Computed example of a mutant assay.
Amino acid sequence: MVDEHINIKQSIKRNQRRNFFLTLILLLALILIMLFSISFGRADLSFSTVAKIITGKLINSKLLDNFEEYVVVIVWDIRVPRVLIGALVGAGLAVSGTVFQSILRNPLADPYTIGVSTGAAFGAVLAIFLNLFVVNKMIPIMPSAFIGAICTLLVVLKISLKDGYISSSNLILAGIIVSSILSAGISFLKSLSGEEVAAIVYWLMGSLSSKTWTQVMISFPIILIGIILCKYFADDLDIMTLGEKEARSLGVDPGKITKVYLVLASLITAVCVSVSGIIGFVGLIVPHILRFAVSTKNKILIPLSAICGALLLVLADNLSRLLLNVEIPVGVITTLFGGPFFIYIFFKKRR
Results as ranks from 00 to 15, higher is better:
Val89Ser: 11
Ile222Gln: 05
Ala306Ile: 10
Phe21Pro: 04
Phe21Ala: 08
Asp110Ala: 06
Lys62Ala: 14
Ser193Gln: 00
Ile268Val: 10
Leu58Val: 07
Gly175Ala: 08
Lys348Arg: 14
Leu242Met: 12
Ser187His: 07
Lys57Cys: 07
Leu30Tyr: 00
Leu312Phe: 15
Lys297Arg: 14
Leu28Met: 08
Ser61Glu: 14
Ile141Lys: 01
Phe342Trp: 07
Asn136Phe: 13
Leu192Asn: 02
Ser191Glu: 03
Ser249Glu: 11
Ala306Asp: 07
Arg14Met: 02
Met142Glu: 05
Leu290Lys: 08
Trp203Ala: 01
Asp235Ile: 15
Gly41Tyr: 15
Asn136Trp: 15
Lys13Phe: 07
Ile343Gly: 00
Ala293Ser: 15
Pro303Asn: 07
Val332His: 01
Ile103Thr: 12
Pro111Gln: 04
Val75Asp: 02
Asp317Cys: 11
Ile31Asn: 13
Ser295Arg: 12
Lys297Pro: 12
Val95Ser: 13
Val197His: 01
Val75Trp: 01
Leu27Thr: 09
Arg18Ala: 12
Arg18His: 14
Ala198Asn: 10
Leu24Cys: 13
Phe337Met: 10
Val326Tyr: 12
Ser48Glu: 05
His5Gln: 14
Ile53Cys: 05
Ile139Ser: 02
Gln101Ala: 04
Ser37Arg: 04
Ile103Arg: 13
Val178Ile: 10
Ile8Ala: 07
Ser37Phe: 03
Val71Gly: 10
Ala310Thr: 14
Ile227Trp: 07
Gly283Glu: 06
Lys9His: 12
Ile328Asp: 08
Asp44Trp: 12
Leu192Pro: 00
Met217Ala: 08
Leu27His: 06
Val116Trp: 03
Leu284Glu: 13
Ile268Trp: 11
Ile257Thr: 00
Thr214Tyr: 02
Leu336Ile: 09
Lys137His: 14
Ser46Thr: 11
Ala145Tyr: 04
Met205Asn: 03
Gly331Pro: 04
Ile176Gln: 05
Val125Tyr: 00
Ile33Pro: 01
Glu246Gln: 11
Arg291Asp: 05
Phe337Ala: 15
Leu104Ile: 12
Lys256Glu: 08
Ile78Phe: 06
Gln10Val: 08
Cys308Lys: 09
Leu301Asp: 10
Ser305Thr: 15
Lys349Cys: 03
Leu130Gln: 01
Ile257Gly: 06
Tyr232Ser: 13
Ile78Glu: 11
Tyr232Gly: 07
Arg351Pro: 02
Gly175Ser: 03
Ser274Val: 10
Ile181Phe: 11
Leu45Asp: 05
Thr258Pro: 01
Phe281Pro: 00
Ile147Cys: 03
Asn136Thr: 15
Thr258Cys: 06
Ile150Phe: 08
Ile33Thr: 15
Gly251His: 01
